[in-house]
Write a protein that binds this DNA or RNA. Sequence first.
DNA 1: CATGAATGAGCGTTCATTCAT
DNA 2: AATGAATGAACGCTCATTCAT
Lengths: 189, 189, 189, 189
Amino acid sequence: MAQTRAPRADAVRNRKKILDAAREQITAHGPDAGMDEIAAAAGVAVGTLYRHFPTKNDLVTAVIAEFLAQVAEAAEAARERHASGSRAVDEITGFLAYVTKETATNRAVKAAARTLGADPVGGDAEARAGAALATLIQAGQADGDIHQDVTVDDLYLLFNNVPTEEPPASRDRWLTLVLTGLTTHTRTT
Amino acid sequence: MAQTRAPRADAVRNRKKILDAAREQITAHGPDAGMDEIAAAAGVAVGTLYRHFPTKNDLVTAVIAEFLAQVAEAAEAARERHASGSRAVDEITGFLAYVTKETATNRAVKAAARTLGADPVGGDAEARAGAALATLIQAGQADGDIHQDVTVDDLYLLFNNVPTEEPPASRDRWLTLVLTGLTTHTRTT
Amino acid sequence: MAQTRAPRADAVRNRKKILDAAREQITAHGPDAGMDEIAAAAGVAVGTLYRHFPTKNDLVTAVIAEFLAQVAEAAEAARERHASGSRAVDEITGFLAYVTKETATNRAVKAAARTLGADPVGGDAEARAGAALATLIQAGQADGDIHQDVTVDDLYLLFNNVPTEEPPASRDRWLTLVLTGLTTHTRTT
Amino acid sequence: MAQTRAPRADAVRNRKKILDAAREQITAHGPDAGMDEIAAAAGVAVGTLYRHFPTKNDLVTAVIAEFLAQVAEAAEAARERHASGSRAVDEITGFLAYVTKETATNRAVKAAARTLGADPVGGDAEARAGAALATLIQAGQADGDIHQDVTVDDLYLLFNNVPTEEPPASRDRWLTLVLTGLTTHTRTT
DNA sequence: CATGAATGAGCGTTCATTCAT
DNA sequence: AATGAATGAACGCTCATTCAT
């Protein structure tokens, strides 16, 4: 068993090209994007695509996992900023706004997720995001800005059901409505 | 001018069987339910299905329209009850709870809607529901229970994005969260 | 067995309406005209159509037979005119011109004929036309205008293969070419 | 730049098998031959057929184009023989006989053409055949064998309307009749 | 390990024909 | 006898997946 040689570089590069292409194609044409089209967009043959992702489901799952990793990073970044002094409720607001926007942009990702059988997609992303958000919520509650009964699951519940087909103005309005449900502040009319 | 004869009985029965089967199948397998499967579930041949609904789109549209008609009736019933003395905010709450439950049960109806190009599906259902809800919102605002800035579109925005993949407990929690965003009452923790 | 009563009149009228509609529809849309469309154009239900013509083939055959009857009449009229003194070769020329034009107009009839398995369509029409044409050919040969070797079958052979998809000018040219093959006259260039 | 590798061997073989099968099936059952039947006859799956010819129309077109190429080659061969000393009128006669026979054998090719919208199917075949035939006609006219008014279009007109449903004897007779229309020679009876 | 040709079940839809009313 | 709703085999075509090269 010689130590693994360099050639693996190609495979890594291919995996990335495929994921990028899949994200693009799924975003552009919905989860109905064909495997051939994704392969073509990635500049590889279908066979290669199947070597990396034995099933379309696997590919879509990977795209979603990638997205969730981003979300986790955003949550952790929010926690860092709070650690550096920003207000927890503002970070939570910003985080929800970020997720709302991204999910809408990647609306296909969400639609695609629906075709999956609620697989355990997230890897550790969910855990990482959860930890960061829990810290923020606790801090917000200590500040008296966030309702005492709010949990991380509440955030998941909301951002798993973000409006994806609505115009930006509607998305903003949606955000306003649900944030009112999380914070102790009443809206000024 | 003899009244039009009975023979339509079969066709009427079949139309109903088809719509029932379509609702069921679409609910069970999403909008990807095959026409053959729907026909089989309805106990008719494909040809019959196509006689009643010339296109798959027509069938899906009909299923959705049926659902919207139910929703409109629920809204009007809520208005009636309010006219008979019930509190507007309670009716709105009840209506949202009803829609949330129904939408979750009919999860596929919503998914199916996605396959349509935002056609003006509802017939007059949307208008009827809108009128009834507007009355209730105004009354709720007059009572001081509903935020001054809440509109019918807000309700639409929320129930167009109801959680469909979550367990009943989550749906209830979701309802609690968004209702807090609509009403002037703060949650007691 | 009471003698057949009047009501049969409807059936006769229906048969005619159906044949007329079939001719029209087939001419307009080719032999692919649907049975439903033909029935609708005739103002009857499909069932009625099928009572009169148990098979699409039967209907098409009837349309063709009708056409052949017309052709037979044209041949007999030409013979009459010759009996009254006109030149035989002129009548043959005129007859061929007539058939060419009609066949082109009814191009669908010809196309339809192709879908049949060379069924014995004609009824007595073929015999009647044959008799009239034989007379004319013989007379033309006696006049020295028609080649001695020309037979009725030659005429059938030609008009069974008339150009149907060509513009009128081409059809005329075709007629000129084949007539030169029948007559003893050489073309003047 | 290595030369493109062999792997195409299969595809090339398949394309040929498909075209052969298509010719056969279309000849046997007309242009209504099903794609599945053609695929089965070719010993491939439908998908393979569609990879080579994305549309039924494309396949039919290819079959016709193949036939037209043959015709063009025959015309050019006739011109070569004339260049080597044979009589032009004999080459034209031979060419028409060849086309008549081939068209009858390929009767479906002609019928199939009808399903196309007079597309410019031939590629350069029509041009090549036209050039060769024009040369022959001119030579025949110079020899005094061919009518001065005969053009290439006359030949096209005739062989576009060759008898396809008649027995060989009838086809020969048809040829005799129309050739008399092209040449200056009168038939001997 | 990559390629891309091949596979074949499945899809939405049509239409000649049958049959209950 | 007329109606028109029902039937179901067949069609052209797609696409996730497999496998020979």
